[in-house]
Design a protein around this nucleic acid. Structure first.
Length: 597
RNA sequence: GGUCCCGUAGUUCAACGGAUAGAAUAGGCGUUUCCUAAACUCUAGAUCCAAGUUCGAUUCUUGGCGGGACCA
């Protein structure tokens, strides 16, 4: 229960008491009330916007505000101590007593903001890599988002199932395979001393180089560009390999398994490092056939229909879209075919209430179609499908392009960040007594904290720009800033001797103390917002503001050398609760907070 | 050709239709015999354009201009 949700019914009650009998006022709804935190330049804590009542009650806002304010203070002296009206805004001051009792009740509660189980199941599908290349920056945004959203839901009382669909089949992996056959001479990740995903990715690049070369040669030999692209031997070989794969040719299957396993071994290392985990992993090689069956079954009952050439379609013109192809004329599946099958399979496996797909916004149309088709088929789980659409990560120079070699590799980026964390830490020299493994852990915590915070602090829906230089910054609106605040608080708390009394015995609060409590009090509301919007950035922004609020307080007022024992106790409670909320909020983002740094 | 998304300080991001549009960073001025200066304080700086709805528009509507994505 937050203060705002506590205030609202009180206001409704007073509105009814004051104006309920007037014929014009039919009813006052909590949902119609606009309550904001009061802007710092005005006196008060929370503000009721009066304009919506002005018309209804035909009273000037000043009079209206005065009447409501007076009635509220009179009826709830424990909560409100003062009010004032400026223009159309009623500013209410909440009593220090209220804030103090809130603090005493919650400062030691490390679960503050968590909710009891709701009995609802949510699947979160995220990460979903291709097996032909290593994880890059764009995947990182996906991974961090998916993990964080799942964590936020989990702490809000939902049962969550994290899943991943691996795109392990198709032309792309065949390209890596054929390049390996042609150029590797039997090399392996071990023999090349390379991470498996990078190793396989290199052959994908190698394929493209060779392909380009062959195309150029053919064009020089007189072929048109289109023909050359079709006729290049390496491409023909790849297409043959894809057919062989579908027909289950043993040596192709064996090679495919071998190379995919190299990739998985590489992915595992990265996943472990960034903290991604999955309760269930699906593989496209296993879901594309059920996808076809799914369509074939739907064909019997409509709404799928077959055209003369044998291709299968669904008509979405009534929904404002076109006819969509769901099975090619040769019976092979298209992208959406396997997604239909997978949706069915996921529901059968877990009977979810909601199924979140963390997928880039270039798939908006695709996901819309997927949901529409399932709805049209009358699937009970269709409404529960939610596309968590996120914007692409771009470089200052524009979109990352693998062909131009501008893709930011995840492993390299993390290494780079760790290096910067190490240099900076050594330069400051605050943890010289740390053992080597403690140091390594700290560098990882800071590096990943910076990276995760950077990618999660922006509204997922928005495209974002990654500037390599700025992103590595550890100052300002960054993960390390928040981590540092936490470490400083912990440093204070370590100095505390014994257990303080529950009641601090302080009667009133200073401005900065109160600001901090108000900020702390908003944490549960912020989580609710993050849940409703499927948006971790509100937590990142909140936790940053909280840290800033503490830092301002910290420089102004001493905790251990407070003016009195009572003040000291109060500030210890404030510090402890701030540390708890920071740790909790950062935890929701998948970011660790150090005891020292 | 059709559908969708986005335009806010130099830059990267905020702002349920609410008060003088917030931060961070880069720039300028300061703070360390006192709990960690990866911090804090002060300063300067922005809503793409034009209409409309509204007591009130960065937010909603329409039309431009600019950028991006997708579909056939």
């Amino acid at each position: 229960m937050s203060i705002v949700s506590e205030i609202k019914p009180l206001i409704v009650t007073e509105l009814k008491n004051l104006y309920g009998k007037e014929p014009i006022a039919i009813g006052f709804q909590e949902s119609e009330l606009t309550i904001n935190t009061t802007k710092p330049e005005f006196e008060g804590d929370y503000t009721l916007v009066l304009f919506s009542f002005v018309k209804q009650l035909k009273k000037p806002p000043e009079q209206l505000g005065a009447e409501i304010g007076e009635a509220l203070v009179k009826a709830n002296p424990e909560i409100f101590t003062a009010h004032n009206v400026i223009k159309g805004f009623l500013n209410l001051t909440v009593s220090d007593k209220y804030w103090l009792s809130f603090l005493v009740a919650n400062y030691a509660n490390t679960k503050f903001g968590s909710r009891p189980a709701k009995g609802q199941k949510v699947m979160v599908e995220y990460s979903s890599p291709n097996t032909n290349k290593p994880i890059h920056l764009g995947h990182l945004r996906n991974n961090f988002l998916g993990w964080s959203v799942a964590q936020i839901l989990k702490q809000s009382g939902y049962e969550t199932i994290k899943s991943c669909i691996v795109n392990d089949r198709g032309i792309h992996i065949c390209k890596s395979m054929i390049a390996w056959l042609l150029f590797a001479n039997g090399a392996t990740p071990e023999s090349a001393n390379k991470k498996g995903d990078h190793f396989v990715g290199d052959y994908y690049v190698r394929f493209n180089d060779e392909y380009k070369k062959q195309v150029a040669e053919l064009i020089a030999g007189g072929l048109k560009k289109e023909e050359a692209e079709k006729e290049a031997p390496i491409m023909k070989g790849t297409q043959q390999m894809l057919l062989d794969w579908e027909n289950g040719k043993p040596d192709v299957i064996a090679l495919w398994k071998k190379m995919n396993n190299w990739v998985y071994a590489g992915f595992d290392v990265t996943y472990k490092r960034i903290g991604s985990d999955f309760a269930k992993t699906y593989y496209e090689s296993e879901t594309y056939l059920p996808g076809k069956r799914f369509v074939e079954e739907g064909l019997k009952e409509g709404p799928f229909f077959k055209k003369e050439d044998g291709s299968v379609w669904i008509d979405l013109t009534n929904e404002g879209l076109d006819e969509k192809l769901v099975l090619r004329k040769d019976g092979t599946s298209v992208y959406i075919t396997q997604d239909l099958g997978l949706a069915e399979e996921k529901y059968r496996d877990f009977k979810y209430d909601e199924s979140i797909y963390v997928i880039a916004d270039e798939q908006n149309y695709h996901m819309k179609v997927l949901k529409l088709i399932l709805k049209k088929l009358g699937k009970p789980y269709a409404d529960g499908i939610y596309h968590l659409s996120y914007g692409m990560v771009e470089l200052p120079s524009g979109r990352m392009k693998s062909r131009e070699g501008t893709v930011v590799d995840a492993d390299e980026l993390i290494e780079e960040m760790v290096k910067v964390a190490k240099n900076k830490t050594e330069e400051l020299g605050k943890v010289k007594d740390f053992a080597e493994d403690e140091l390594a852990e700290l560098y990882d915590t800071i590096a990943l904290g910076a990276l995760k915070f950077f990618l999660l602090r922006v509204d997922p829906k928005k495209r974002m720009i990654f500037n390599p230089e700025e992103s590595i910054d550890f100052h300002g609106f960054t993960g390390p800033f928040v981590q540092y605040t936490h470490a400083r608080i912990k440093s204070i708390l370590r100095k505390r001797s014994g257990v303080g009394s529950q009641e601090s015995g302080v009667g009133s609060l200073l401005k900065l103390e109160k600001d901090l409590i108000i900020s702390l009090e908003q944490y549960p509301t912020i989580i609710e917002q993050a849940v409703a919007e499927h948006n971790p950035s509100v937590i990142a922004i909140y936790v940053f503001n909280l840290a800033k609020s503490f830092n301002t307080f910290y420089t102004e007022h001493s905790v251990m050398n407070a003016e009195s024992e009572e003040k000291k106790e109060l500030r210890l409670q404030l510090s402890e609760m701030t540390a708890n909320v920071i740790a909790s909020g950062m935890g929701l983002l998948g970011i660790k907070v150090p005891e020292r740094m």
